[in-house]
Design a binder for these strands. Structure first.
Length: 477
RNA sequence: GGCGGCAUAGCCAAGUGGUAAGGCGACGGUCUGCAAAACCGUUAUUCACCGGUUCAAAUCCGGUUGCCGCCUCCA
């Protein structure tokens, strides 16, 4: 199955062909480390995590780079308000980020460079831009990129420079020759961190770090560059201008941008203050639920985050795990396979969905189909052949490798879901167990009135009983 | 003001020219002492609205309405 990828500037899907045969260089914009990550970050991180996992699964030799922006105005502001250094702030939030990624089962990128470790590469690139007269030094020792000098400016975001100038919201700074120009190097103010450069004691502009680091690690042309939609303009537009002006090569073959997470239909952002941190959220929401939720819509579409959405993802995940648990507990025998066809169809459909611009939503639908089929087969005959059992496990293992869900032992997962929710019922496990025993005694003596009473009482507290030949189980509704 | 995106059942949501995936919910059934789970069946003649192109349109084109995003830090 060939992979088709949507390319932002073309606005359509195109067969994926890396520059060098099987080798793929992918760069994703990481986070600015001045605060805790929120679920908007989580989406972007998970989307590119899944893309990276899938590319590897397809046999590509991937080098994945995701940066940390560890010097910028917000970090400095944060450091000042805490009375500490920018370094302390950056290091602290890099650690927090790593903790979040562990929680979310997001695999680290191959290379996770920090801007401040690449000041010399940044300076080199700015110097080239200056030599080629794409950049100019302002009176204060800052350096700006001259947008009007670069002919292709606007090709990524589909904007024309004349229109932007006509627009009302371009901010005017005296030091710039043109309002659209942007800083490559900023002279540091008194008390701010600085690095030596040919122009002034200062620090890099925001956009240049990505151009410099991505091309440093991956070469002048990247196969894939991604990030959130909001980075298209100006960040990625500016990155492109700098990199192409400096290196004279096409910067990016495929631009991939993920949609936002919204809350009540509004974009979640720091400035609106309506964000939810990953840490806070994963206190009560299992990380796999969050992953499944974020993968349940196509990566380019917005996702509205709500309790309802979380519950729906939880239900789906539990359904999948219950099926897996059922397969694990089915009596296994040496007998003819009867699920081989199902598993094969599933693998093909899943791959096809993912090859269609990483359509995780469609891939999840395939999982639902498979689950229904397996349950149906086990309803008809609860015995399962060892062959089928291992084929299914292998197939689900592939899904785990790509989606990062179903990574837990099903029985343990279901048990943990139950246990984690006991506290909100106001009952202890012993109390629940006691009531179940009392009810089963009542059932034996055909005192169904008392039995139903107990069941309804537990249900009112959020506990659903499930009778089966093996006994009575319960779960949190 | 400029640029762009989206609009599919009660809800969530796939689907970019070939006759509407999937999930949740609801209803009916099998199972069960009764439930729950699981399974079976029903739940959009129709894809915001109006026109056009085509043998064929949710999909392409033009217009209208509504929502959202970017143009300022943003995943």
């Amino acid at each position: 199955m060939t992979l088709n990828v949507y390319n932002t500037p073309l606005k359509k899907k195109k067969a994926f062909e890396p520059l060098h045969a099987n080798k793929v260089g992918m760069y994703a914009c990481g986070v600015t480390v001045y605060d805790m990550c929120h679920i908007g970050h989580a989406r972007s991180l998970i989307v590119f995590d899944v893309i990276a996992r899938f590319l590897r699964k397809k046999g590509y030799d991937l080098t994945f780079v995701r940066n940390f922006t560890d010097i910028d105005d917000k970090i400095i502001a944060r450091a000042n308000s805490l009375g500490t250094s920018y370094r302390d702030v950056a290091d602290r939030y890099i650690e927090e980020y790593r903790t979040d990624m562990d929680i979310l089962k997001v695999r680290p990128a191959d290379i996770e460079p920090k801007a401040t470790d690449h000041i010399s590469h940044i300076i080199d690139m700015v110097r080239i831009l200056e030599e080629k007269e794409y950049a100019y030094r302002a009176d204060d020792g800052s350096v700006y990129f001259s947008v009007s000098r670069f002919r292709g400016y606007g090709k990524l975001s589909g904007r024309r420079t004349e229109e932007m100038i006509a627009g009302a919201r371009v901010d005017i700074e005296d030091l710039k020759r043109d309002p659209l120009d942007f800083a490559l190097w900023k002279r540091s103010k008194e008390g701010e961190p600085w690095w030596d450069s040919p122009w002034s004691k200062g620090r890099p502009g925001w956009h240049i770090e990505c151009s410099a680091m991505s091309t440093h690690f991956l070469g002048a042309t990247l196969d894939i560059h991604g990030g959130g939609r909001d980075l298209i303009f100006p960040h990625h537009e500016n990155e492109t201008a700098q990199a192409e002006a400096a290196l004279g090569a096409e910067f990016v073959r495929y631009w991939i941008h993920n949609g936002f997470v919204t809350i009540d239909g509004e974009k979640m952002s720091k400035s609106l203050g309506n964000f939810m941190t990953i840490r806070e959220l994963t206190k009560d929401v299992h990380p796999e639920i969050l992953r499944l939720l974020l993968l349940s819509r196509h990566y380019r579409s917005p996702i509205d985050f709500s309790n309802e959405a979380v519950n729906s993802a939880r239900q789906a995940l539990v359904r999948f795990y219950e099926m897996l648990d059922r397969v694990n507990h089915s009596p296994a025998e040496d007998r003819e396979s009867r699920l081989e066809g199902l598993v094969g169809t599933f693998s093909r459909d899943f791959d096809e969905a993912m090859c269609d611009d990483f359509n995780t939503a469609k891939a999840i639908a395939c999982l639902h189909d498979l689950t229904t089929e397996i349950n149906r087969a086990l309803d008809q005959d609860p015995k399962i052949s060892r062959k089928d059992q291992s084929a299914l496990k292998a197939s689900m293992g592939e899904v785990t490798d790509i989606f990062g869900v179903f990574g837990e032992e099903p029985g343990e997962f279901l048990e943990a879901m139950k246990r984690g929710s006991v506290q909100v019922t106001g009952l202890s496990e012993q109390e629940i167990q006691g009531l179940i025993e009392e009810r089963n005694l009542a059932r034996k003596t055909k005192d169904f009135k008392r039995a139903d009473e107990i069941r309804d009482t537990l249900k009112a507290k959020g506990i659903q009983l499930k009778d089966s030949p093996e006994g009575t189980a319960w779960e949190k509704i």
